[in-house]
Design a protein around this nucleic acid. Structure first.
Length: 724
DNA sequence: GAGCACTGC
């Protein structure tokens, strides 16, 4: 066997582009693609293949192995197969491999089943939310299972030690999504109880050392370590080269003041001076992208000679499926494709054939302020890791070039190495209910104390033992304020008790429903109020992006169509009207088009609704319709979303509201049916932050319902804000 | 009368 690395011997080198601007370069890898070679030959050509023995050795002897591998190394598809071939799935055990995204789970599972020559859903299977393609009923024959990290977290509710798995591989750990981080924190705990469990953490170049430090438990089992069956606690690190090509990096000499304009001129000069090859431009959002597309199209018209060969395409998640697919479709010979994209092209979508990348150095990022309890989306500088990932997009099929619209000095001296993990930028309500409640078990916690902390008595914090909870060992610790906020909301929802344990039955029921806790609580309340049919429809609609078709230039028509469904009570009730209309039409695509309703979205709503119905029935919710009594529907919404209650300012001429809990200034979004109606008391589903805070999906309520729904929450903090 | 990076259970 070729290369073989043991701890203590010289380590294979990690590649880095900090100095030379060389990325992912692998001289030995063949560039001819797969061609007509047999599957076995293809497998052997992957860079990871020559590390087969090394990987198996490390997994055998170490509790945790960290595999640092670039795109195209083959680690995701091959390592689970190596493990299976080496016997890790014998005796009914299962090898798990997690991914952050659903699409990746499906794609990888299908590839691996093909390579192994087995039917997907039997020996090789996958699970994503609402979709389980594993064999657990007839034969329990699934040996390799791909799943999203969120699904694995959910499995821990049933089986906290994940006993059926012999090896768990956490892929793309460098992305540091909330669920990956929660999973890593909990897996570390599981390891203590299950020394036979093996973890493989797979990551791009960054952070291998800090990840290793995280998994290096200080408790050493002296005398046992290194003996049969007991693995070393110190994680092994193995590096596998990728299959990418050399990407040459260029920087601007002086900082640019307008990155949109700079991106446009860079595209033009690439087009003038460089050989054929597609261009991928990274900007921040829809506004930027539409502006850049417009500018480039104008250039193409004014300056025929140099830019006539450009096909300019926008790419962001808000585009319809058909518009997104355009970027994958072939273009006429002799033309050059320019894709102007958000971060969606950084990880979620891969465009083959890109030779040039233009990187603005910015992206939109979410930040959470636990004091105001508001999440903001702001344009912020990207990290070095992100910049590298973007550059790598130019070297997938041949050597490429990356033009960074910032200076080399800025990259070297000022750009942070990694982004802030999502866990430190988010509202933690969902996260706490999913993973943390298990981890928090056994910690003493007095919620009254927590509420006092908000009012300013921080000295109580230590005495109450909250340190235990806040000090839980995450790969990235969230701020105490954010954690307290989340616990406070869950306590008010009646989901956690004074000891931060799930309440019975409400807490367990809420945890069982795979939706945000506030939505789940709304569903529970609908059971008592006799409107579960309606509320489940609302929950399904709220869980997809939008039910409307948005076509640029037809905004007015859409607004008019919306009016046909508008209900005085608010958006939630209007959604019910759309759903009823859709059913009455016989789920007709034609009806949808006529009414500016997105047919695909409505089919998804129907599907999710069916799944939610099944889950609801399983946890004892009786399906019942309230017919036309919308008051109970509004009460159920209040029971889940009381924390988002707002009051219209008494003398406001411009529709200014203030949130009850933190007196934040907020406005009804113009897309809401209650825009300009301005009822005195409303509850919103979410906030959008731009120059103002806009409430999206708003429903009017009676303030007395708030105290009814959440006596602790409102009587404790705001005794005077609500008329009795 | 205005505008939503990207995921996930």
């Amino acid at each position: 066997m070729a290369q073989f690395w043991k701890p203590g011997t010289e380590r294979p080198p990690l590649l880095d582009d900090d100095e030379g601007g060389i990325l992912l370069y692998s001289a030995s890898s063949s560039s001819s693609g797969y061609g007509y070679v047999s599957i076995e030959k293809q497998r052997q050509r992957l860079p990871v293949f020559k590390y087969r023995m090394a990987i198996l050795y490390l997994v055998e002897t170490h509790a945790t192995t960290i595999v640092v591998g670039e795109t195209g190394s083959g680690k995701t598809t091959q390592i689970p197969q190596f493990l299976k071939e080496a016997g890790w799935a014998d005796g009914g055990r299962v090898i798990a491999c997690t991914q952050p995204r659903r699409l990746a789970v499906q794609a990888v599972a299908s590839r691996v089943s093909e390579e192994m020559g087995v039917k997907l859903g039997e020996e090789v299977g996958y699970t994503i939310r609402f979709e389980d393609l594993t064999d657990r009923v007839t034969q329990d024959s699934t040996r390799i299972k791909f799943l999203t990290d969120g699904v694995l977290l959910r499995e821990m509710m049933e089986d906290p030690l994940l006993t059926k798995y012999s090896v768990i591989m956490v892929d793309e750990a460098h992305e540091r999504s909330i669920s990956t981080d929660v999973l890593l924190g909990l897996l570390k705990k599981i390891q203590r109880r299950r020394p036979e469990l093996r973890l493989i953490i797979s990551s791009a170049t960054i952070e291998a050392k800090s990840m290793a430090a995280f998994f290096h438990t200080s408790k050493k089992r002296r005398g046992l370590e290194g003996e049969d069956c007991v693995p070393k606690t110190e994680p092994a690190i193995l590096s596998v080269e990728g299959r990418g090509f050399n990407v040459q990096i260029f920087y601007v000499e002086e900082p640019v003041s307008d990155y949109i304009q700079a991106a446009v001129s860079t595209v033009m000069s690439i087009h003038d001076q460089e050989p054929m090859g597609d261009i991928l431009v990274f900007l921040t959002g829809q506004d930027d992208i539409d502006a850049a597309v417009r500018l480039l199209t104008e250039e193409a018209q004014n300056n025929r000679k140099s830019s006539s060969g450009l096909v300019v395409l926008p790419l962001y998640s808000g585009l319809s499926r058909a518009d997104q697919d355009l970027v994958f479709s072939p273009i006429p010979r002799g033309k050059r494709k320019v894709v102007i994209s958000t971060n969606i092209a950084e990880t979620s979508l891969t465009l083959e054939g890109v030779s040039y990348v233009v990187d603005s150095g910015f992206s939109k990022q979410r930040f959470y302020n636990p004091i105001s309890d508001i999440e903001n989306l702001v344009v912020a500088p990207i990290s070095k890791a992100s910049a590298r990932q973007r550059a790598g997009r130019a070297g997938r099929v041949r050597p490429g070039k990356c033009y960074r619209l910032y200076s080399e000095e800025y990259f070297v001296k000022e750009m942070s190495a990694e982004g802030i993990p999502e866990m430190q930028r988010s509202n933690l309500v969902s996260c706490v209910i999913q993973g943390c409640s298990g981890a928090l078990e056994g910690c003493l916690l007095n919620m009254e104390g927590i509420l006092d902390i908000r009012v300013g008595r921080r000295d109580k914090l230590k005495a109450l033992g909250i340190d235990n909870i806040l000090g839980f060992d995450w790969p990235a610790s969230p701020s105490p304020e954010a954690m307290i906020r989340a616990l406070e909301v869950l306590y008010s929802l009646g989901v956690l008790d004074d000891d931060a344990k799930l309440t019975s039955p409400a807490g367990f029921q809420v945890a069982e429903i795979p939706l945000e806790p506030m939505v789940s609580k709304m569903i529970l309340a609908s059971n008592q109020l006799g409107c579960s049919e309606e509320i489940i429809t609302i929950a399904a609609i709220l869980s997809i992006q939008s039910i409307w078709i948005s076509v640029r230039g037809q905004q007015k028509d859409l607004d008019e169509a919306k009016l046909r469904f508008a209900a005085a009570e608010g958006d939630h009730v209007s959604f019910l009207n759309v759903y009823k209309g859709f059913l009455r039409s016989g789920k007709s695509p034609k009806w949808c088009n006529k009414n500016f309703v997105n047919y695909q979205a409505m089919r998804k709503v129907v599907e999710i609704r069916e799944q939610l119905k099944r889950i609801a029935q399983r946890i004892g919710i009786v399906l019942k319709s309230c017919e036309s009594d919308m008051q109970v529907v509004r009460k159920a919404v209040t029971a889940g979303f009381f924390a988002n209650a707002c009051n219209l300012e008494a003398f406001s001429h411009n529709g200014m509201y203030k949130t009850i809990r933190s007196s934040q200034e907020v406005y009804i979004h113009p897309s809401s049916v209650l825009f300009r109606v301005n009822p005195k008391w409303v509850i919103y589903n979410s906030l959008v932050s731009t120059d103002r805070q806009y409430m999206r999906n708003v429903i009017s309520i009676n303030p007395s319902w708030l105290i009814e729904a959440a006596p602790h929450f409102y009587q404790h903090h705001h005794p005077n804000s609500i008329p009795h």
